[in-house]
Amino acid sequence: SEEKKKAKERLERLGASSELARELLDRANGNAEKAERLLRKLL
C-alpha cells in the first residue's frame, strides 16, 4: 500500500536498511509509528 511504502521510506531515512525497514513494519503489523519506535530503540 502507499502508506506502507511511505513508512518504509521514512524508516530508511532514519537509518534502517531496506531489509530492516521491511522487518520492522512486519513486526509492527504495518503500524508506521510502532515500527519507528522499534527502530529508535535499535539505533
Rank of each mutant, 00 (worst) to 15 (best):
A28N: 05
N29D: 11
R40T: 07
R27K: 11
R10F: 08
S1Y: 13
A32R: 06
S17G: 06
R22G: 11
R10L: 09
L25N: 00
K6S: 12
E12K: 07
K41G: 08
L38F: 06
R40M: 15
A7T: 06
E3M: 09
L38G: 01
L14T: 01
L24R: 00
R10I: 07
A21W: 06
L42P: 01
K41H: 12
L11Y: 02
L42Y: 12
A32N: 03
E23Y: 14
E23F: 13
A16E: 01
E36F: 06
R22K: 12
L24E: 01
E23C: 15
K4N: 14
N29Q: 11
E2Q: 10
R27F: 10
L11H: 01
S17H: 05
A28Y: 11
S18M: 07
K6D: 11
K5M: 11
L25W: 05
L14D: 01
A35G: 01
L11Q: 01
E36T: 05
K34H: 14
R22A: 15
E36K: 04
L20V: 06
L11R: 01
E2V: 10
G30Q: 05
A28M: 09
A16D: 02
G30I: 02
E23I: 14
E9T: 07
L39C: 00
E33Q: 12
R10S: 05
A35P: 00
E33T: 09
N29A: 08
G30F: 06
E36L: 12
A21D: 00
D26Q: 13
S1K: 10
E36R: 04
R13W: 11
N29P: 01
E2R: 07
E3Y: 14
E3W: 13
A16R: 01
G15P: 01
A7N: 08
R13A: 14
R13L: 13
K6P: 05
L20M: 09
E33N: 09
L11A: 00
A28L: 06
L43T: 05
K34F: 14
K6C: 03
A32E: 08
L43C: 08
E19G: 07
L39V: 01
E12A: 05
K4R: 15
E2P: 09
R13G: 07
